[in-house]
Design a protein around this nucleic acid. Structure first.
Length: 252
DNA sequence: CCAGACGTTGTT
DNA sequence: GTCTGG
DNA sequence: CCAGACGTTGTT
DNA sequence: GTCTGG
């Protein structure tokens, strides 16, 4: 799935791909984490516009966002029917520019290994996204968003079973056209990414910390040693203390 | 009728 | 274990 | 997604 | 808001 990504392309490169009216400036970001602002592109009055929203979609009907699960992803297979997503699937689709994303591989018994997954040609892509507007009782408004996911293709499947939905440039217009294109029609645009689009590069576990944000996070590390190692012995299951007998506190 | 859920991932 | 913060 | 907290009173 | 469960 996609719980961390990057947007390191220049504002000019992003605008060249997505063709919005605005000319925003923004810094490269190597480690975008949930709850942080993400760049989205949506169609407004027939024009493409750039915006920043909080990553973690909050449906409009939520009363207390604090006690609502953070929806950073939406399964593309079911989003059109889910109460949390279906209105957005019809009326609030967007594109989310990305230079790539991170996935963590979890070998049996081994340590989690992060991978930086980016287009082989070094360009950027547009993820399929949904956005929402949430009105707080004090009259404030918060815009939020989520990334659609799909079963991983063969390449990414080596690392993880889900991946973000990538929208091809020829489909940008239809994906964004919420006036004329229904959720059902939009769903047809969602496809697995071509096998040769991405490459996966093992990177430092520094990326684990959302506070780290620098180019070094995308530098290859040598993970061969780790991968060829025999899996560690499975951690011993701690003996379950017999809770039932006696009920005495066993302090010594 | 009202109350309560509404989600994804991964892991077991 | 579970929740919050980034 | 992962990391880090998870608590109170009073004092500086 | 809308659907499901009781």
């Amino acid at each position: 799935m996609c719980g961390r990504f990057a947007l390191t392309a220049s504002p000019e490169e992003v605008r060249a791909l997505l063709q919005y009216l605005d000319q925003p400036n923004f810094p490269p970001r190597y480690n975008i984490a949930p709850t942080q602002p993400i760049a989205i592109v949506r169609q407004d009055h027939g024009k493409r516009r750039f915006a920043l929203v909080r990553w973690g979609l909050v449906p409009g009907w939520v009363k207390d966002p604090a006690s609502f699960t953070l929806l950073i992803n939406a399964r593309s297979e079911t989003a059109a029917e889910k109460p949390s997503f279906r209105t957005a699937m019809r009326h609030r689709r967007c594109l989310i520019p990305a230079s790539g994303f991170y996935e963590w591989k979890r070998p049996d018994g081994g340590p989690k290994q992060p991978y930086w997954i980016r287009p082989k040609d070094g360009g950027l892509v547009a993820f399929a996204g949904l956005w929402e507007e949430w009105a707080d009782p004090d009259g404030g408004e918060i815009e939020t968003g989520a990334i659609l996911t799909i079963e991983a293709n063969r390449t990414v499947g080596e690392i993880h079973n889900r991946m973000p939905v990538v929208i091809a440039p020829e489909d940008f217009d239809d994906w964004l056209d919420v006036t004329n294109v229904t959720a059902k029609e939009a769903a047809k645009i969602v496809k697995p990414a071509p096998e040769d689009l991405f490459e996966a590069i093992p990177v430092s576990t520094r990326v684990n910390s959302a506070r780290d944000d620098d180019p070094g996070l995308q530098e290859p590390v040598d993970v061969a040693a780790v991968e060829t190692q025999a899996p560690r012995p499975a951690p011993k299951k701690a003996q379950k203390p017999a809770k039932k007998g006696g009920g005495q506190l066993d302090l010594f």
